[in-house]
């Protein structure tokens, strides 16, 4: 039974695309078949973050408008067989997306994949509302920072009122993914801590991605971080979050790249 997952946040720049790519890759690494759809029409970037920018021929809007068939637009990842990408259009405007068209594409993808991951654009306009419209599960990407938390709260409200599930009176599963977390600054009271964010948003946690240089490195290389450096702290955090999405009981930790004294003495052991 396919699950449609939206990665959303309201605020821009918090790590939606990075997280959609990393969670998609992590689920695929765990043996699931996954398609990640870029809903950011006019400003596509998922193709670049996943390293498929030179292989885009057709896009979501071409499929929605019937110009191309779905299999023509889907791009298979070169590293993992079960990971696919459906890019956004770079030229059309977001009004070219229709609810009926998106419904048709998502229902077709449900028949082919275990996970359909919708990478939402920032904001609360058409692209963002359509990205969440048919979701069963939502991952709300939140930075421990006031404007991001406020926007996440707004998105939670929209998920509970404007999705197809909400309108049918069904529950939509919602999870907070905290990104760019700095445990040391949080401990010094310089950054909202995990408990603060969860209490304010009253939504359960799916993972904590620590602030790390490795994230930028992965996007420079055009590879989801779980593929480019699976042993890095953020990759381990995404891999654990993906297992939790599958329903596995994985203890919540904040992975760290810092080497402890024992690590330094005895060499690094893989986590």
């Amino acid at each position: 039974m396919a699950k449609v997952l939206v990665v959303t946040s309201g605020k821009g720049g918090v790590g939606k695309t990075t997280s959609a790519a990393a969670l998609g890759a992590a689920l695929a690494q765990g043996g699931q078949s996954v398609v990640v759809i870029d809903f950011d029409v006019g400003l596509r970037n998922l193709d670049l973050v996943m390293g498929a920018e030179r292989r885009v021929v057709f896009d979501l809007i071409n499929v929605v408008q019937g110009v191309a068939k779905l299999p023509q637009a889907l791009i298979r990842d070169k590293r993992i067989d079960t990971l696919w990408l459906l890019p956004a259009s770079q030229t059309r405007d977001k009004d070219a997306l229709t609810e009926e068209g998106v419904a048709r594409v998502i229902s077709e993808l449900r028949g082919k994949f275990d996970w359909v991951i919708c990478d939402s654009p920032a904001g609360i306009e058409r692209g963002a509302t359509l990205a969440m419209r048919f979701a069963d599960v939502a991952v709300i990407v939140t930075n421990p920072e006031v404007s991001s938390v406020r926007d996440s709260d707004r998105m939670i409200g929209l998920l509970d009122s404007k999705t197809e599930r909400a309108e049918k009176g069904e529950r939509i599963e919602k999870h907070i993914l905290i990104t760019r977390y700095d445990p040391a600054r949080a401990a010094r009271g310089e950054m909202l801590n995990i408990e603060d964010v969860l209490e304010i948003l009253s939504t359960p946690l799916i993972g904590i991605i620590p602030e790390s240089e490795e994230v930028l490195r992965a996007s420079n290389l055009g590879s989801p971080i779980t593929l480019s450096n699976a042993a890095s702290a953020p990759a381990r955090a995404y891999l654990a979050a993906a297992r939790r999405l599958k329903g596995e009981d994985v203890p919540m930790t904040i992975p760290s790249d810092r080497k402890g004294l024992l690590d330094k003495l005895f060499g690094r052991r893989a986590a």
């Binding site: 409200g157 009271g189 801590n193």
Partner: peptide
């Protein structure tokens, strides 16, 4: 100086209590 996070937390709690009321 004790860090600014408690201020952030309090401001958010007050703001969101209001915004949730206005929502809808």
């Amino acid at each position: 100086r004790r860090g600014s996070a408690p201020v952030a937390r309090e401001r958010l709690q007050i703001l969101l209590a209001y915004e949730r009321g206005v929502r809808g």
